[in-house]
Design a protein around this nucleic acid. Structure first.
Length: 429
RNA sequence: GGAGAGUUGGCAGAGUGGUAAUGCACCGGACUCGAAAUCCGGCGAACCGAGCUUAUACUCGGCGCGCAGGUUCAAAUCCUGUACUCUCCUCCA
């Protein structure tokens, strides 16, 4: 959500910033036109209301003194009708303006590479060296199915495409990964939370998914209810403080949560149709921070490094990129993506997305704190995957696969798997 | 799922048609060497708009009693719908 006063005062700057995200100048012009109309109507309506209040007071006095007030009442009847008409117009304009505002993305930070496509993302750093294979590395779904730890046939029968069954050691690996991540985040000072996996519309609006998410049918809404399956734990974590004032001595607040994420993947037809990369339901460990405005840019680096540190311990090669102005999510002012090396695809694939949404979500969700002067200010919110669990399992299977089809388990995960060092083909049932 | 009760300022708590009592807390002042007590004054920094502006400062106005509508010259008060909380019953991991 936007600060209209700020936009009014810095209109050209705002137009340029929105242009970086592909928003046309005409849209902003329309917004300003509506804003002017709205304020004009407010002035008219409010002056009539002031008159009504004054005369009503007189009527009340007249009646108390048993005097006749018919004239005033007749006059106020007309004023009342006029007010009603103005307020109806006002409501209409306001709805239109709100709708327009709700669709405008966050302002990109000056450090964000400007581009109207995803081309132009800046690589910040590359960590680890992709392994040289002396055999042809298999894709993770083949490895998983051969080892009998992933079953995509039965998940298709039972639920449909883009679902999976993890079996035996596969299931154990998934849970080892998320327990490892949660422990790492705990150690870094993030409070662990188990949130609701369904949320109401106000929450979806608060974090910026609605209205676009709804229009694009990007998620799973529960029929005949106001609930939506969460597309990320970011939604219940950020909305934890919706409509609240966080005591400033508590800042920064850091949350982490494991949750399934539910996404319809509409518009992704034909992309990543196999394997664990793009499912309707996947596990993700999420990190969220609430900070004072002056601390949020440091916090973005901090949250990104936290996600990276877990990956380093796993020993999976990755790089970090800063997304372009148009490739970022709607709410972000700057986003660092972490991408892991996937040998079978010979490229890096996203495993984490860390964003500073500045005060954008805080305005929508009304999350504030009191500054040193006791004034209410919007806080800044940040979110980052720390990290996607299914994609981690995919990366482990591919990066640590052996010629004989077995997979080595990263050392840091072995304690989480009863000391197992290697996954070999299992006899299950 | 059924029945009932409730939702008012930071907290407590009045108000059943005439424009939000009161207490506590908080802020300022007086008294005091200082503090406490007492006294005086202030107290919707939730939001919107106008004027004046460097200003989120100030002045004025609107709005404001869970939310959304309706009736009325006038609604916290009356009517309708709805959300949430609590209690009881039912059901259930």
């Amino acid at each position: 959500m936007l600060d209209m006063k700020m936009i009014r005062q810095n209109l050209d700057w705002y137009k340029n910033k929105m242009a970086e995200r592909g928003v046309e100048a005409e849209t902003i012009d329309k917004l300003m036109e509506l804003d002017n109309q709205r304020r004009d109507l407010i002035v008219k309506s409010e002056s009539l209301k002031a008159e009504r209040n004054e005369v009503s007071d007189q009527i009340s006095h007249l009646k108390r003194n048993k005097e006749n007030a018919d004239d005033a009442i007749t006059r106020m009847r007309e004023v009342g009708a006029e007010i009603k008409q103005l307020d109806e117009q006002l409501e209409q304009v306001k709805t239109e303006q709100d709708d327009l505002e709700a669709h405008l993305p966050n302002v990109p930070h000056d450090g964000v590479p400007v581009s109207l496509t995803e081309e132009g993302a800046v690589e910040l750093r590359k960590v680890g060296t992709p392994r040289k294979f002396d055999f042809k590395p298999k894709p993770h779904w083949e490895i998983g199915e051969n080892l009998d730890i992933l079953d995509f046939k039965r998940s298709a029968k039972v639920a449909g495409s883009r679902f999976v069954y993890y079996l035996g050691a596969g299931s154990m690996l998934e849970r080892a990964v998320y327990n490892f991540y949660l422990d790492e985040n705990d150690k870094a000072g993030y409070t662990e939370i188990i949130p609701p996996y369904m949320v109401n519309s106000a929450s979806m609006f608060g974090t910026g998914q609605f209205p676009k998410f709804k229009e694009n049918k990007a998620g799973f809404e529960i029929k005949d209810s106001d609930l939506t399956m969460i597309p990320t734990a970011e939604v219940p974590l950020v909305n934890f403080y919706r409509d609240e004032v966080i005591p400033s001595e508590k800042l920064p607040v850091k949350f982490t949560a494991l949750s399934p994420a539910f996404r319809s993947e509409a518009g992704s037809a034909g992309r990543d149709t196999k394997g664990l990369i793009r499912l309707h339901q996947f596990n993700k460990v999420e990190m969220v921070q609430f900070t004072k405005p002056e601390d949020s840019w440091d916090a973005l680096e901090n949250i990104t490094h936290q996600a990276e540190s877990s990956l380093k311990k796993l020993g999976i090669p990755y790089h970090v990129i800063t997304l372009t102005s148009s490739d970022m999510s709607f709410t972000a002012s700057m986003t660092h993506d972490i991408e892991v090396w996937m040998p079978s695809q010979d490229c890096y694939r996203e495993i984490s997305s860390c964003s500073n949404t500045t005060d954008f979500q805080a305005r929508r969700a009304h999350i504030q704190y009191r500054d040193e002067n006791g004034k209410l200010q919007y806080i800044h919110t940040l979110n980052g995957s720390g990290l996607a669990v299914g994609r981690t399992v995919a990366a482990i299977l591919e990066n640590f696969q052996n010629d004989d089809g077995s997979v080595n388990i990263p050392e840091v995960l072995q304690p989480y798997m009863h000391g197992m060092k290697k996954i070999t083909k299992q006899e299950l049932f």
